[in-house]
């Protein structure tokens, strides 16, 4: 066709009529414009919404912190409405509940992650493929249990059995202050940690499973050909291959544990001030504190809770960012 058009014998009129750009110019139809516009609008709307929420929260938090009579970062008390302060002025700090948040989440990860990795390895490396996928589905179902159910179960069932375990731990490790108690057990940060461990197990197990499943055949065969047993093959090929991905899965699980609210609020006996003994009743987390206090809080109280929520947001943000850094660094090292 183009030959015909370029040939010298082509009809002069026809050459004039044809735009040389014909077929190459854009032809944006109504559908294109409509879709493009609405997509752009949605994106802009979300940004504005987020900025508005952030501005509101930061304003509220700043106002509360401005009225705070003690240091917000280091104080252990939480009395923003001044119910029991000497002059009725707000006194509140994030330190004790931030500590409780970290401790329960760390316990959750320490207990949950190894089990999750074991489950993922068992499903991908030991079970036949068909049974493995059924088993994996059942583990995934753990994630479908509502957290309030975990809270009820933790409070009514699990906690009954934690006293015995806690006592054994105290008998063995009681010389470390963390594991000392006043003789009472349960409703403790340890119980909350165990509940969190079960709650974050499915997400870590699911991600780890997907990663381990993708271990390259060549790596697996390289290990077997050297005379590796199955466990040695896993150590040589599967675990190194999955290391960065599983690390970030664990960090993501940690992030979820930090933000878990209602189950922790139900299990923990909230005690004011800093609680360092993880086996006896007491302790509090940022999210649980918000859930429990919000209903009875007055203006400053609510603003203070918003401030604590911002701190929690910052913590999870940092944790999620850390997970990304781990993945990115591993990606660079691997290539």
């Amino acid at each position: 066709m183009s030959n015909e058009r370029l040939s010298p014998v082509a009809d002069a009129d026809e050459v004039e009529v044809r735009d040389p750009r014909s077929g190459l110019t854009a032809k944006a139809g109504l559908g294109d414009r409509l879709f493009g516009g609405s997509a752009r609008g949605a994106a802009v709307f979300i940004l504005i919404l987020m900025a508005a929420i952030a501005a509101f929260l930061i304003y509220q938090a700043a106002e509360a912190i401005g009225k705070d009579q003690v240091n917000f970062v280091t104080s252990f008390t939480w009395d923003p409405d001044g119910n029991s302060t000497p002059n009725g002025q707000p006194e509140f700090g994030i330190a004790a509940i931030a500590w409780g948040t970290l401790v329960t989440s760390v316990i959750g990860v320490l207990l949950g992650a190894p089990v999750a990795i074991g489950v993922a390895l068992f499903i991908t490396q030991y079970l036949p493929r068909k049974i493995g996928s059924v088993f994996g589905y059942i583990v995934d179902l753990l994630a479908a249990v509502p957290s309030v159910v975990y809270g009820l179960w933790g409070l009514l069932v699990l906690d009954q059995h934690m006293s015995g375990v806690s006592k054994i731990i105290e008998d063995v490790l009681g010389w470390i202050p963390l594991f000392k108690t006043d003789g009472t057990y349960g409703s403790s940060m340890f119980t909350a940690g165990v509940v969190l461990a079960i709650m974050i197990l499915p997400i870590i197990a699911a991600i780890a499973r997907e990663i381990y499943k993708q271990t390259p055949r060549e790596q697996i065969e390289a290990a077997y050909a050297l005379g590796a047993t199955r466990w040695e093959m896993i150590r040589l090929a599967v675990l190194p291959y999955g290391r960065s991905g599983v690390t970030s899965a664990i960090i993501l699980g940690f992030g979820r544990a930090l933000g878990e609210t209602i189950a922790v609020a139900m299990v923990l006996t909230q005690v004011p001030g800093l609680v360092t003994r993880i086996l006896q009743p007491g302790g509090n987390t940022i999210a649980a504190n918000i859930a429990v206090q919000f209903g009875d809080a007055f203006t400053t109280g609510r603003q203070a809770l918003i401030a604590s929520g911002l701190v929690l947001f910052l913590m999870t943000l940092i944790v999620n960012y850390a997970a990304r850094v781990v993945v990115r660094r591993a990606g660079k090292a691997g290539s």
Binding site: E218, Q219, E221, A222, L226, G227, T229, P240
Partner: peptide
């Protein structure tokens, strides 16, 4: 079979060193 593979070594089509090592 594990002992067999320690006695009979193998080299594969695509070079497959352990990537993290």
């Amino acid at each position: 079979p594990v002992a067999v593979r320690r006695t009979v070594g193998m080299v594969f089509q695509r070079p497959n060193p352990f990537p993290t090592m």
